[in-house]
């Protein structure tokens, strides 16, 4: 203890206290405050950035879910449109088929009628021709047989009657 007191230097104590207090004051203004403020600011900005990143991730997630839903909807829409188109096609084909069939029936019917008419006409013609031919033949035959006019006419009348009734 005696040595401690003996070693104690008032001058050293004086300078140490003076210089140290000055150093604290100077460092506080020029070093510690700016450094600690900067460190604080940085810590806050890091925290803010982390929070923002977390938020962005959440947003991304919801966006992704949204995308998924939209995609699904689009797919369903496509399915629906395709199905509609297919139905429409089928319907159109069926309709066309029906129309074509109807048309064909109609054409056939008219053709039949025309053929019938032609046939009747042709038969009539044939009959007339056959008649005139028969008359010619009969004339030739009867020309020799029936020289008298009245006989001829009665004969023709009788023949025509026969022809008409068959």
């Amino acid at each position: 203890m005696d040595k401690l007191i003996n070693d104690f230097s008032v001058g050293l104590f004086f300078w140490q206290s003076l210089v140290f207090i000055l150093l604290i004051v100077l460092l506080r203004k020029f070093a510690w405050k700016p450094i600690l403020d900067a460190v604080n600011e940085r810590e806050e900005s890091i925290e803010g950035a982390l929070k923002a990143a977390e938020k962005a991730r959440e947003e991304m997630k919801s966006l992704q879910a949204n995308n998924e839903a939209v995609l699904k909807e689009a797919r369903e829409e496509r399915e629906r449109i395709l199905k509609e188109a297919r139905d429409m096609k089928n319907k159109m084909i069926a309709e066309a088929k029906d129309a074509a069939a109807a048309e064909a029936d109609k054409t056939i019917a008219s053709a039949k009628a025309a053929i019938e008419a032609e046939k009747t006409a042709a038969i009539a013609e044939l009959k007339n021709q056959a008649a005139s031919l028969s008359i010619d033949v009969a004339e030739k035959i009867l020309g020799q047989e029936l020289s008298a006019e009245n006989k001829q006419t009665a004969m023709i009348g009788k023949i025509i009657e026969d022809v008409k009734f068959n």
């Binding site: 001058g11 020029f30 450094i35 900067a38």
Partner: peptide
């Protein structure tokens, strides 16, 4: 009353100047 700039006082002064410039530099 002895207020001399002894070796230790000199070192304290040097250290104070050193620390001031070092940490001010860091702050800058």
């Amino acid at each position: 009353l002895d207020l001399s700039i002894t070796k230790n006082v000199f070192m304290i002064l040097v250290m104070a100047v050193f620390m001031f410039f070092l940490f001010r530099g860091v702050a800058k």
